[in-house]
Simulated assay, not measured.
Amino acid sequence: MQHFVDAMPLPAVVIGTDERVSAVNRQAAQLFGSGILGRHYITSFRQPTLLDAIDQIMTDGAARRARYLSTEARRDKTWLVHLARIETDGSVLMTFEDLTATEEAGAMRRDFVANVSHELRTPLTALIGFIETLRGAAKNDPAAQARFLEIMECEAARMNRLVEDLMSLNRVEATERMRPSEIVDLAGVVRSVANALEPLAKERGMTVVRDTFDEAVKIPGDADQLAQVFTNLIENALKYSGQGQTVSLRLERVDNHPMTRGPAAVVSVSDTGAGFDPALIPRLTERFYRVDSHRSRELGGTGLGLAIVKHIVNRHRGRLRIESTPGQGAVFTVILPAEIAQ
């Protein structure tokens, strides 16, 4: 029996007719501990749904399934337990199938739908309310009509930005496993983005300082997606830093960067704004996560920008590093593998 259990690819446990664990393989010993062997199954598993399934199969012999929950390295894990009776001696074989990834993917889908619904509900509710007002109380009030129509335009634009970002995120995720093969000039891409955002900087009375963007830096990449990365990062720095602040752009080429284990192009976008608590950094690239939700919505943010940045950087086999100190601004650094200069 032990040889049979050892040959199984999944964690496997055998409970004998004396209701004690008679065999476990290496995977099951890692899950439950080696001391499980010889113990009564009630003291070994301690979860009612699984214990009930074991009781029932010992009574009627019919194969069953049950769930078992565990924790590994502070991560909740879900197992589907397959129970079957071994007819030769009446013992029960349990195999544990890891469903954690499937459960997490389902939770992510549910959260995503809930977040999208929440983001769309607010502008839709506002639009419906204003339409009712325009048909009723403000029907003959040109001043109110102009004011409401302006707000409606803003809310419609916000929904449009959200839909565009969702479509962009979908496209990026669809190509994330396809490494770009074209060679692009990263310095030229960042210069073009900075030039395009110059009017926004002037509007906010801000200064954009560019350092070392004169020489071409060739890397394998998708020019459009890289432009999207730096548009998001520079636009965020301009929007959230406040009037009169400075945004600095720097590009350097590193012959052997530890994060890419080879030559890399490193672009940093730093600002002199309010910054944020470093404890928030791990969550910044989550979909719809915002440090300041109210301010982000006021400035037209959808909460998807940094999630898009993360997926594009992943597609380019790069790294995104974020640093910030409250009151001292933030630095977003993109590290991308670079071609060796010829």
Rank of each mutant, 00 (worst) to 15 (best):
L233S: 06
Q30Y: 15
S91L: 09
D165P: 03
N232P: 06
L226E: 02
H316I: 01
P278N: 06
A156G: 12
S22H: 09
P282T: 02
F148N: 11
Y68C: 00
R110N: 12
D214A: 14
A105Y: 07
P123I: 03
T207W: 00
V291I: 12
T78L: 12
I312G: 08
V116K: 06
Q56W: 15
T100K: 15
T100C: 11
V313P: 13
G129H: 01
Q342R: 13
S192F: 13
E87M: 09
V116F: 03
E298A: 15
P199V: 03
G38W: 10
A101R: 15
A7L: 02
T302K: 00
F130W: 11
P142L: 01
H40G: 12
Y289H: 03
I42C: 15
L80Q: 07
V14T: 06
A307I: 00
T122M: 11
W79C: 02
A66H: 10
S117A: 09
C154L: 15
E104A: 14
I57M: 09
V113C: 11
A201I: 01
E104I: 15
A101W: 09
R67K: 11
V5H: 06
D76S: 15
F45W: 12
Q328G: 12
M167T: 11
A196E: 15
E97T: 14
Q56C: 07
L197P: 02
R321I: 08
L233A: 06
M206C: 06
T59P: 00
E323T: 10
R26F: 06
E215I: 07
M152F: 07
A196C: 08
V217P: 14
S91A: 11
M94R: 00
T95S: 08
R39I: 08
L99I: 14
N236F: 06
R135L: 10
T59L: 13
A338E: 03
Q243T: 11
E298L: 09
S241T: 03
S324D: 07
V113W: 07
I234T: 15
S268G: 05
D141M: 01
L200T: 04
W79M: 02
Y289S: 02
I335K: 00
I308P: 08
I42L: 14
L238F: 09
G188P: 13
G106S: 14
E132R: 10
V14C: 05
S241A: 06
D222V: 14
H40E: 10
M1Q: 11
G205I: 08
Y240G: 07
F213Q: 02
V81F: 10
H118Y: 04
F276C: 03
A194K: 03
D292C: 05
T246N: 00
H82F: 14
A156P: 13
M259R: 11
G273N: 02
A62M: 13
D18V: 09
D60Q: 04
R20M: 03
L51G: 02
E104R: 09
G327V: 04
L238C: 03
V21R: 05
H294G: 07
L69H: 08
V163Y: 04
K239M: 04
I15H: 08
K202N: 08
A341I: 06
G35Y: 12
L280I: 13
M159R: 04
L304Y: 00
A223C: 05
I36T: 08
E87K: 03
R253I: 14
T212A: 15
N160T: 11
V208C: 10
K218W: 10
